[in-house]
Simulated assay, not measured.
Amino acid sequence: MGELRRARLAAAVAVTCATVAGAVVGVPSTAVAKPIAAPADFNGRGFQDLVVPAPTATVGGKHGAGAVAVLYGSRNGVSAARKAVFTQNTPGVPDTAEAKDLFGGSTAFADLDKDGYSDLIVGASGEDVGRFTDAGSVTVLWGGRRGLSGARLLPVPADPHRSR
């Protein structure tokens, strides 16, 4: 592995670990991010939103497919009246809910695209990838003025069980 690739991988791991730990990390970049008013503020209203993972939820009759609920915050706190639920069957979210995917088994947030809105990173440790059982997947749900919408499935190696 080349030095540049190793340095990029180390920076990515540091940012991911710091994000999960809730720390703020300064990583050199040419892009300038707008400051986020509150951590996990997916709609930019200045109030922290709450992520409630349910990785063993049944979705479309598939037990353990998984879901993630987001309760949007306000001056009065979070409320179930202002919520959104995301699964792999949600329009705009890639893939399809399958039994034992465990979508939502891990979550983190960061402003990945540096637009001033937190984005939600969702792991599905039981996701099958090609011929590999339980290889896992990572989906990014993008934050924006109306909350989370649109998503991208991050690529996995061709052989996720082979070390590089």
Rank of each mutant, 00 (worst) to 15 (best):
R5T: 11
A7W: 13
A7T: 14
R8P: 01
L9V: 15
A10C: 05
A11V: 10
A14F: 10
T16M: 06
T16I: 01
T19G: 15
A21S: 10
V25C: 02
S29T: 15
S29W: 07
T30K: 00
K34G: 13
K34Q: 07
I36D: 08
A37G: 05
F42S: 01
F42D: 02
R45M: 03
R45W: 00
R45V: 05
G46K: 04
F47Y: 14
F47G: 01
F47A: 04
A54E: 05
A54G: 03
A57S: 11
T58D: 04
V59D: 08
G60I: 04
G60Y: 09
K62Y: 05
H63M: 14
A65C: 07
A67W: 00
A69G: 06
L71Q: 05
G73M: 03
R75N: 04
N76I: 02
N76K: 10
S79D: 13
A80T: 15
A81H: 08
R82L: 08
R82A: 14
R82P: 00
K83I: 01
K83L: 08
A84Q: 15
Q88F: 09
T90D: 08
T90C: 12
V93G: 06
D95I: 01
D95M: 09
D95H: 00
D95C: 01
A97L: 03
A97V: 11
A99K: 03
K100G: 00
L102C: 08
F103D: 04
F103V: 10
F103C: 09
F103P: 03
G104N: 07
G104K: 01
G105D: 12
S106N: 00
T107Q: 01
A108F: 05
D113C: 04
D113K: 02
D115E: 08
S118M: 06
S118D: 05
L120Y: 08
L120N: 07
I121P: 12
I121L: 15
A124V: 04
A124T: 15
S125H: 08
D134C: 05
A135R: 14
S137I: 05
V140H: 02
V140N: 08
L141N: 10
G143Y: 08
R146M: 09
G147Q: 02
L148T: 05
S149H: 09
S149Q: 14
S149T: 11
G150P: 09
A151F: 12
R152K: 14
L153Y: 04
P155Q: 06
V156S: 15
A158S: 14
D159H: 13
P160L: 12
P160R: 14
R162K: 12
R164E: 12
